[in-house]
Design a binder for these strands. Sequence first.
DNA 1: CGGTTGACCAAGT
DNA 2: GACTTGGCCAACC
Length: 107
Amino acid sequence: MRFNEKVWQLCKKVPKGKVTTYKLLAEAAGTKAYRAVGNAMNKNPNGLLTYGYGKKMVPCHRVVDSSGHLHGFAHGLKKKAELLRKEGIKTENGKIKDFEKVLYRFF
DNA sequence: CGGTTGACCAAGT
DNA sequence: GACTTGGCCAACC
């Protein structure tokens, strides 16, 4: 299994209404390649992970940086914020509002 | 094998 | 809080 796929698997573990960070994702994957995580997302084979990895969708829109700030998104950050809000996660100007409360720590 | 890139992170201005 | 620096790691060429 490639590093990318591993990351996606972990992404799917993130429950709805919660978010995670690239750092935690990397740690959970057994590495410290924070950047490689985002890199993998960008160059994913599906074009965009959110709507289809195999048959299950990968909620990569629930992934933010360690500061709770949103980063790139193939469909646009605006769309990303909308999706998050739809799940009960409040955002403001591209950043998670109750970041600490909605943060999922892979336990 | 070496160099570049990136949806990063932490620490320092 | 915003911007800069240095460091990190995997993927790609």
